[in-house]
Design a protein around this nucleic acid. Structure first.
Length: 433
RNA sequence: GUCCCCAUCGUCCAACGGCCAGGACACCAGCCUUUCGAGCUGACAAUGAGGGUUCGAUUCCCUCUGGGGACACCA
């Protein structure tokens, strides 16, 4: 039997991280078994469905590297199919019409189904006396459309969140009534937040798109998601691409809900960032900066590569290029009030900045070794501690108390900007008005 | 409330029923250092409780406790 799985989101919101992991597990399972991954859009609820979310689902899946082998198939375009099968059940006397809806009466019984992760799950159907199959507005309910579609699409494995466990016995009943063979079910645990309840906006970002925007790399995000409930074994953590597909084993997914840990995701992302080839990192950063208008479309690639190299093992997420390193791109940089107060207003600071400026202006080559030599020479001659000069210069040049290594930073900024900032700091900022 | 699912460090994962329960993140300390970070060292830290089964239980069974999920003409 060939493996066929489906991911069936409803376009009623941005693609949720939890849904993304369900999609990912389905996709990995399909790819591992050289099967097919089908995308189905469950948009039978016209009131809540919104085309804008469709685009988000597409973009988010693309970001994750998930490509559907079939679909998207829209339930809203399959109305006739559901009606046809409802009619069939009506003819067979298995359902009744009640108040304009097609209802499936459920005799009290016990339903047992096999789950790939949980083993046999048994449920007493007296919990639900009847199931609405077709609503009075003529559209199918979730459980009915889901069964008809999964059966007609010949889905072999239904892999979904374990919040669907309660739906499964209802669907099993419908498979039987319709005479369809049962797929294999696998209910994977949910992702929860720090409150142990399902991930909600109260505790941060919940949509894939938000994580993409903050600047997580797809491989890192996928790697993190897959580690939530599964591991490749051997205490290994970093895994991606084909290796991940080959190693993935649905049966080894843990059954307990996993808590989403932003910090570990950050760490993983930083690991991937360190391993990203410089040209790609530079391109990713440039994309953000150009979009923000901080960099022209025809930016200097060599220059940006130097910045990328300098920041490569400092960034946790791409967003930090704008959040913490704007001084590379803004003229003048933003000066943090606290930093100015702390380092630029001391006795003799302005004079030292101007003296360094003078020496730097005479440098033949404005490169890191020469900048460092000039700075250290001044420190030595004035019998200062290094930090007595370096800290003020850092604030003068970057506007901040913390920055990447200062001499490299100055070299990359270039002589003109450094001299101008030193002067500005010494003449305007260092003196209280 | 009823039904279902789940239970190893704070968190995420390991551990054919059998060596001192292992790794990672976070946290803490040290080294390095122009700040921060990165990196390197090290420390701290768990089998929810009680019963069984067994020569031996993290692992198998039962009860309890705790947590979560589901109880729509929403998906």
């Amino acid at each position: 039997m060939s493996v066929r799985v489906r991911f069936a989101p409803s376009p009623t919101g941005k693609l949720h991280v939890g849904s993304a992991r369900t999609a990912l597990f389905n996709w990995l399972f399909a790819k591992h078994h050289r099967g097919a991954f089908v995308l189905r859009i469950e948009d039978t609820d016209q009131k809540r469905s919104n085309p804008a979310f469709l685009q988000d689902i597409d973009a988010s899946l693309a970001f994750l590297g998930i490509v559907a082998d079939e679909g998207p198939i829209f339930q809203s375009q399959r109305a006739a199919l559901y009606r046809e099968h409802a009619e069939r059940l009506l003819q067979a006397g298995q359902v009744v019409e009640r108040e304009g809806a097609v209802v499936f009466p459920v005799a009290p019984q016990t339903v047992t189904f096999a789950d790939l992760l949980h083993g046999d799950i048994t449920v007493d159907t007296s919990l639900f006396e009847s199931l609405v199959l077709m609503k009075s507005d003529g559209t199918p309910t979730y459980n009915f459309a889901c069964v008809v579609d999964d059966a007609l699409m010949r889905i072999s494995h239904v892999i979904r969140g374990d919040d669907h466990i309660a739906n499964t016995p209802k669907q099993v009943l419908l498979y039987r009534a319709l005479g369809f063979p049962l797929p294999v079910f696998a209910h994977i645990p949910l992702i929860v937040g720090v409150d142990r309840a399902r991930l909600s906006k109260r505790f941060g970002a919940t949509s894939v798109d938000e994580y993409r925007q903050v600047g997580y790399l797809p491989e890192a995000f996928v790697n993190y998601l897959v580690l939530l409930g599964w591991s490749p074994g051997g205490n290994r953590e970093l895994i991606a691409g084909q290796e991940l597909i080959e190693a993935f084993d649905l049966a080894k997914v843990r059954k307990a809900a996993a808590q989403f840990d932003q910090r570990k995701l950050d760490w993983l992302n930083s690991q991937y960032l360190k391993r990203t080839p410089l040209p790609r990192l530079a391109a990713l950063l440039a994309e953000r900066l150009v979009a923000k208008g901080w960099l022209p479309a025809d930016y200097d690639r060599t220059w940006l590569s130097r910045i990328a190299a300098l920041l490569q093992d400092r960034l946790r997420v791409l967003e930090e290029i704008e959040e913490e390193h704007a001084f590379f791109f803004r003229e003048p940089p933003d000066y943090e009030g606290e930093a100015v107060e702390k380092y630029l207003r001391g006795d003799g600071v302005a004079e030292r900045l101007l003296e360094l400026r003078e020496r730097l202006s005479r440098l033949a080559a404005f490169d890191t070794p020469q900048i460092e030599a000039a700075t250290r020479a001044l420190v030595a001659e004035r019998q200062l501690a290094s930090k007595e000069l370096i800290h003020p210069v850092r604030v003068a040049v970057t506007g901040r108390e913390v920055s990447p290594p200062l001499f490299e930073t100055m070299a990359i900024l270039g002589k003109a900007k450094v001299l101008s900032r030193l002067e500005h700091a010494a003449t305007a900022l260092a003196r209280r008005s």
